[in-house]
Amino acid sequence: MVSSYLVLVWAWTRAAMAYRASFALMVLLGSVITATDVAVILVIFANTTSLAGFSRDEALFLYGVAGVAFSLCDMFVSNLDRISQHIKAGTFDAMLIRPVSPWIQMATDRFMPSRIGRVLQAAVVLGYALAVLDLDPGRLWMLPVMIVSGIVIFASLWTLAAAAQFVLTDAPEVTNAFTYGSGQLTQYPFSAYGRDLVRGVTYVLPLAFVNWQPGLYVLDRADPFGTPGFMRFLGPAAAVVLALLAALAWRQGLRHYRSTGS
């Protein structure tokens, strides 16, 4: 599994590296594009000291954690959402005759190493926030847990989106609302959002467990929505449940795959 993944990643990386100048430019432009998200946060906090009860540096901490998890998935998993293109072109068949899981082949399809710029950008923001915030060192063990469960949650979302595209061949773009929408949602403290929306992304789509619930623990803050304290530690459980659901959906999608004519 892992070795096949690395083999495919390496092949696409070599293909991308053929144009070195273009590669360097894409790394740069990619990180500038994601940096605009930080710029927006900075512009907002240039006009206020506190947004929905959180300071600029706290907001940057939440942004950084989710950003690292999201951009890693964007780099290593998000190619899955090209599946409807492969289904339409009939090239998905070619992935099914290889002795490697089609999930791995899709996830690495046209792998773009230049997306590393986005990961680095998010990591820099997180590093800055950790440096300036006076956090309780006894709570920092949660940080790697958050990032890993965040990666699992986002990767599961992309898998669900890809599975849905077996059915939604006419409008695959609708899944963007959930994948990239989740990336957008987790950029801000959830206290900014409406109560019903936060309930939805806590109990239905467990996005609150990427950075919000565990982040409250790291920042030593009470939940403005009043959820009980044990919820801060449910991230890994939520990630596992979502991953199982995603695996199930993916298998169902494959079973119901109807290869195109000819």
Partner: peptide, 8 residues
């Protein structure tokens, strides 16, 4: 495609 496992 059934022989290759592409279609169930």
């Amino acid at each position: 495609k059934m022989l290759c496992g592409i279609l169930t």
